[in-house]
Amino acid sequence: MNFTERPRRLRRDGIRELVSETTLDATDLIAPVFVDATTGERVEIESMPGHERVPIDESVARVREVLETGVGAVMLFGIPESKDERGSRAWAEDGVVQEATRRITAETDATVITDVCLCEYTEHGHCGIVEDEAADDPRLTVKNDETLDLLQKIAVSHAEAGAEMVAPSSMTDGMVEAIRTGLDEAGYSDVPIMSYAAKYESAFYGPFRDAADGAPAFGDRRHYQMDPANAREAMHEVELDVEQGADILMVKPALPYLDIVRDIREEYDHPIAAYNVSGEYAMLHAASEKGWLDLRETALESLLSIKRAGADLILTYFAEDIAEDLA
């Protein structure tokens, strides 16, 4: 036999690495950090092995642990000391994320990104102001326009505390425009917005809701998060966020929606982020504990697939472990 083309020639050690098409680096990764105002010690998150809620006093130490692995960016999520119907602790000057942000930016070189949402701060666990009698009628949902004012206040309070990027995640119509307007008017026109532009109502969020104490007290989020069946709608959502001034476009979750990542990559030149969510993390850990999968190999392959699909940035709970392997 005489084969003109033999692709296997390029798969030999030493050559294989030279022709590798997709690369993953620690600088591509963002590590989530949970800061808890209700505790004085670190609390293990059982459904997310290797992760903890940390008290405000431990927030700097926790971020330094991230930095030691080579990851330079963190996303802060807060668990407040108290909750109410409007989630007022979300924009409080002495709020958990605000205080942690001030300390981390003052004492480390980490790039601090903050989650802008209300679900962790409201008594009902929804991402905004709920309609009257919503607890009694699952057809009722979050009041969109009234919620925009609160999201704006949260984003500005985070910028005032020193956040270098804000990431609105509520899927509220008009949230990017409202936040961009608020930041610009407050003198923070240089603070970029990483919008959760295509965030699906997914079954993969379970462990996160344990970690952030943000599960809905009633109903679900299908009236404001996207239907997993829809792809064209995602492109429309992204288009709206781009028009409103989003700087980075987020897809969440990552692995079940790599087609969406690819579609956005082909249509837009904006940086694309993908959130490798808690359920994706937990299921690999569970399979590894059963001895069915090698954890680090499957984690690395998963993150490579997200990069290959077109993501520039990956928010992942594997950030620290994979960064150490990449070093």
Rank of each mutant, 00 (worst) to 15 (best):
residue 205 Y to C: 07
residue 141 T to V: 10
residue 201 E to T: 15
residue 166 V to K: 02
residue 195 S to D: 03
residue 162 G to H: 06
residue 194 M to D: 05
residue 186 A to V: 00
residue 195 S to N: 10
residue 215 A to E: 11
residue 149 D to Q: 14
residue 152 Q to A: 15
residue 195 S to M: 07
residue 192 P to W: 01
residue 227 D to L: 01
residue 209 R to C: 06
residue 229 A to M: 13
residue 182 G to R: 06
residue 165 M to R: 06
residue 224 Y to G: 04
residue 206 G to D: 08
residue 163 A to T: 11
residue 167 A to S: 14
residue 203 A to T: 14
residue 172 T to A: 12
residue 162 G to D: 04
residue 178 A to W: 07
residue 152 Q to N: 14
residue 214 G to F: 02
residue 174 G to S: 02
residue 224 Y to S: 05
residue 222 R to E: 14
residue 148 L to C: 06
residue 196 Y to G: 06
residue 204 F to D: 08
residue 217 A to W: 01
residue 161 A to H: 03
residue 219 G to T: 03
residue 190 D to M: 00
residue 199 K to F: 00
residue 222 R to M: 09
residue 144 N to M: 05
residue 146 E to F: 10
residue 213 D to R: 04
residue 161 A to W: 01
residue 172 T to C: 02
residue 228 P to L: 01
residue 229 A to C: 12
residue 143 K to A: 13
residue 182 G to Q: 04
residue 138 P to S: 01
residue 200 Y to T: 02
residue 168 P to I: 10
residue 177 E to T: 09
residue 205 Y to L: 08
residue 134 A to M: 02
residue 136 D to Q: 14
residue 158 H to T: 03
residue 181 T to K: 14
residue 138 P to V: 04
residue 186 A to E: 05
residue 218 F to L: 05
residue 154 I to A: 07
residue 178 A to C: 05
residue 147 T to L: 09
residue 170 S to W: 07
residue 203 A to D: 11
residue 202 S to L: 02
residue 135 A to N: 12
residue 149 D to T: 15
residue 213 D to N: 12
residue 227 D to Q: 00
residue 196 Y to M: 00
residue 186 A to D: 05
residue 174 G to M: 04
residue 135 A to W: 14
residue 147 T to F: 03
residue 173 D to Y: 00
residue 223 H to K: 12
residue 187 G to E: 06
residue 178 A to Q: 03
residue 228 P to Y: 05
residue 153 K to F: 04
residue 157 S to A: 15
residue 222 R to Q: 13
residue 223 H to E: 10
residue 155 A to Q: 07
residue 171 M to L: 11
residue 171 M to A: 13
residue 201 E to S: 15
residue 218 F to H: 09
residue 163 A to M: 08
residue 153 K to A: 14
residue 183 L to M: 01
residue 210 D to T: 13
residue 221 R to E: 09
residue 148 L to T: 08
residue 152 Q to Y: 06
residue 179 I to R: 11
residue 153 K to P: 03
residue 180 R to T: 02
residue 229 A to W: 11
residue 169 S to P: 08
residue 221 R to F: 02
residue 167 A to I: 00
residue 198 A to R: 08
residue 179 I to E: 04
residue 173 D to N: 11
